[in-house]
Design a binder for these strands. Structure first.
Lengths: 215, 215
DNA sequence: GTCTATACCCGGATAGAC
DNA sequence: GTCTATCCGGGTATAGAC
């Protein structure tokens, strides 16, 4: 069922890491509220109070997962921005990166975005990180529209749609469909086909996006 | 914050309907497991055991919400199929219908799809209804590809992306962004721009989809 | 760092009066 | 159909020994 990349299985994780891994999987399938600290401890193979030697609370486990994911995503968008090539290539690269990232991370990050975890008042730090990420993504699309690369779409709506597709990607990686390398291109193609002002540019953009792209 | 359509507020709902409405909203924001029957009762304005005069369990409240939504969706897809016009027009009409439906329903249906509620063993009936809906949606896309209307996309992947966009639509309607009439077209346009083999047909399809379409 | 034991609260659901 | 009262299991978190 699951992909067996080195970073997802094997390895000798610390107890702290194993708590994060198992908690992310349980949050994803049963929700944050639907997962008990007993469930997490059982999955890790320790007793329930042991969790509290590593994390202050159940909430702080979720907060660490949110922090890691959104910081990585924002960092990737920033890197592709500075690599240049224009909005279309930046967006294509980001989509490739996201698919690869979701496949290789040992965490199942669905719960963060699938549930409205971030709308709960106590997750204000996560909300702040998400706003930062969203503004980076939206600025790529806005630049694409103003520079004439993209059609005259509403950047906010396009940003929402791209986010929805990313979530669907996370979902698919996590629920263990095989997921070949071609899939990343298909997803990026779907988005770019819709956004590009001249669709004939798609092939050139795909090629350029892959150039100097360390798989 | 919220839209004030007649079907969403006002009206004199029965206690049973009010339970469904408030439960759907709480499930959407706090998750199924994160919502207690006491929360629901408080929102409705009755005492907690009163819920059990209308529903056998908390689960059966969720089941009724799932049933209503998926039956309506499958029914719409079937109707547009028999109305004819070809896959592109069927899909465009369905997307318009979905946006309108999400705006007018008094229920907040995010929880059904956002969380993995349907992956829980006890929701087997809902899973069956979802599979039926998915196969209808996938057949529209498959026919579009085989008849040459659509590009050579993977129907399964395209179906997943369309589902993701529908969910984002539900999410957006529910979280109360204004949502004008143009938005429905923009969403349908985004999907069809990416799928259509010849993008120049988009305008004709939009016009045809709106014809004999009772707003 | 991990364990056992436990405090204390809140969850779903039922009984039975009105 | 709605109420009050209540059962009991399971929830998070802490105390303190090893």
């Amino acid at each position: 069922m699951a992909v067996a990349t080195s970073s997802r299985t094997s390895k000798h994780w610390s107890t702290r890491d194993r708590i994060l891994i198992e908690a992310s999987r349980l949050f994803a399938t049963r929700g944050f509220a639907g997962t008990s600290t007993r469930d997490i401890a059982l999955a890790v193979g320790v007793r329930q109070p042991t969790l509290y030697a590593h994390f202050a609370s159940k909430q702080s486990i979720a907060e660490e997962l949110i922090r890691r994911d959104l910081i990585d995503g924002a960092e990737a968008l920033t890197r592709f921005r500075s690599d240049g090539g224009g909005p279309a290539i930046e967006l294509y690269r980001y989509l490739l990166w996201e698919v690869a990232y979701d496949r290789s991370t040992p965490f199942d990050l669905r719960a963060i975005y699938q549930t409205d975890l971030l709308e709960l008042p106590e997750f204000s730090e996560g909300r702040k990180l998400l706003r930062r990420f969203d503004s980076l993504l939206q600025s790529v699309i806005s630049r694409g529209v103003s520079e004439g690369d993209f059609d005259e779409v509403d950047p906010l709506l396009a940003c929402r749609v791209v986010n929805a597709i990313i979530l669907e990607t996370i979902r698919a990686s996590a629920s263990g469909s095989p997921g070949d390398d071609a899939e990343a291109d298909e997803i990026a193609d779907f988005v770019l086909r819709s956004l590009l002002a001249r669709r004939s540019r798609l092939t050139a953009i795909r090629t350029a996006a892959h150039r100097e792209w360390p798989h």
